[in-house]
């Protein structure tokens, strides 16, 4: 858990997300697997994923940041978290 002024190491973000996805789907994940592809997250978990990212890393993901590109893989999501944490106030919008 960090506050928005802290930066989380990209590795730590990835480890956390892989754990989250494994818990939700009951299968193993790598940083490059397609999150919304077949065998990926159900729609119920899609929103939980966003809530989890916001809470765990102290960012706010709104507007243009919700585009699919940012969520395709664990790698992409960790980049999103890094970008939002750097922006500081959480969320750049579109």
């Amino acid at each position: 858990m960090t506050t928005s002024s802290d930066r989380t190491a990209p590795d730590a973000v990835q480890t956390d997300l892989v754990q989250f996805l494994t818990r939700r789907t009951g299968k193993d994940w790598t940083a490059d697997d397609d999150v919304f592809g077949s065998g990926g997250l159900s729609s119920l978990h899609a929103m939980e994923l966003v809530v989890h990212l916001e809470r765990t890393f102290g960012v706010s993901i709104r507007g243009g940041d919700l585009q699919k590109e940012n969520f395709r893989t664990v790698q992409r999501m960790s980049e999103l978290v890094e970008r939002l944490q750097t922006a500081g106030d959480g969320g750049t919008g579109a």
Binding site: F36, L41, S42, S43, L44, A46, M47, L49, V50, R62, G63, G64, D65, L66, Q67, K68, E69, F71, G93, A94
Partner: peptide, 18 residues
């Protein structure tokens, strides 16, 4: 176009439906 569009459809639908 809200947020420029191109959000994952399941994410968009569950968010609104929640």
């Amino acid at each position: 176009l809200l947020g420029g569009g191109r959000q994952p459809l399941p994410l968009l639908v569950t968010t609104a439906l929640a």
